Amino acid sequence: MSPDKPAETPAEIPAAVRRALDAIDALDNDAFVAAFAEDGYVDDWGREFRGHERIRSWSDNELIGKRATFTDTQVTTPGNPLTVLTQVGGDGFNGPSHFTFDVQNDELASMTITA
């Protein structure tokens, strides 16, 4: 994670979530998609993208393809699902967002983005 992000203990952020956040930091779409279960999905403010192919396409157009950055990331709701609040930057949406991750069998079942 970027140096400007607070360090969370590994117990606070499950490995699957950490892999997705690290992939975003590295702008690595392959690693981001690989963090999801085959039938996992992204819910981007009510728009759902299910399965690796659709998640990859969404990320190409909305997240990693827009060189998204996450700063000031903090866990706001620990557990499973886990929610983080982060400041999103890059060439797409810029502003604060909540990302809620549901982890099943060490993979992301879902990632839901809200205000």
Rank of each mutant, 00 (worst) to 15 (best):
V17H: 05
A37N: 04
R54E: 03
S57C: 11
F32M: 07
L21A: 08
P14H: 12
G51K: 00
A34T: 08
A16T: 14
V42H: 05
V17D: 06
R19L: 14
D30Y: 00
F49R: 00
R56W: 00
A26C: 07
L21M: 08
W58T: 08
V33Y: 04
A37H: 07
F36N: 08
I55Q: 02
W45P: 07
W45T: 13
F36C: 12
A16E: 12
L21Y: 06
D43T: 12
R18M: 14
D43I: 11
G51M: 01
S57Y: 11
D25G: 13
R54Q: 03
A31C: 02
A31N: 02
V42G: 06
D44R: 06
I24H: 11
R50I: 02
R56T: 00
E53V: 12
A20F: 12
E48M: 14
D39C: 04
R56S: 00
W45Y: 14
D43N: 14
G51F: 01
S57W: 12
D22N: 09
L27A: 15
E48D: 14
D44Q: 09
F36H: 11
F49D: 01
G46T: 07
D28S: 06
A15P: 08
A35I: 15
E38F: 03
H52C: 07
E48A: 15
A26H: 10
R19T: 15
V17W: 04
A16R: 12
I55R: 01
A34I: 06
D22M: 06
R47I: 09
N29M: 01
N29Q: 04
D30I: 00
N29V: 03
A35Y: 14
E53H: 09
L27R: 15
F36Q: 10
E38T: 06
E38V: 05
I55P: 00
I55E: 02
F36P: 10
A35F: 15
G40F: 05
R56H: 02
W58P: 09
F32C: 03
L27H: 15
L27P: 09
V17Y: 03
D44K: 09
E48N: 15
E53S: 11
V33P: 04
A16G: 13
R54P: 00
A37L: 03
R18N: 13
A34V: 07
A37Q: 04
V33R: 05
E53D: 14
V33G: 03
R54M: 01
A31H: 02
L27G: 14
E38G: 06
W58A: 08
D44Y: 09
A37E: 04
G40R: 06
D39V: 05
V17M: 03
R56M: 01
N29C: 02
A35M: 15
L21W: 03
W45Q: 13
D30S: 00
D43W: 13
G46E: 08
D25A: 13
D44G: 07
D44P: 04
D43V: 11
L27S: 15
I55N: 01
A20Y: 09
Y41W: 08
G46M: 09
D28H: 06
A37M: 05
V17I: 05
F36W: 12
A31E: 03
W58R: 10
A15L: 10
L21D: 05
F49G: 00
D44M: 08
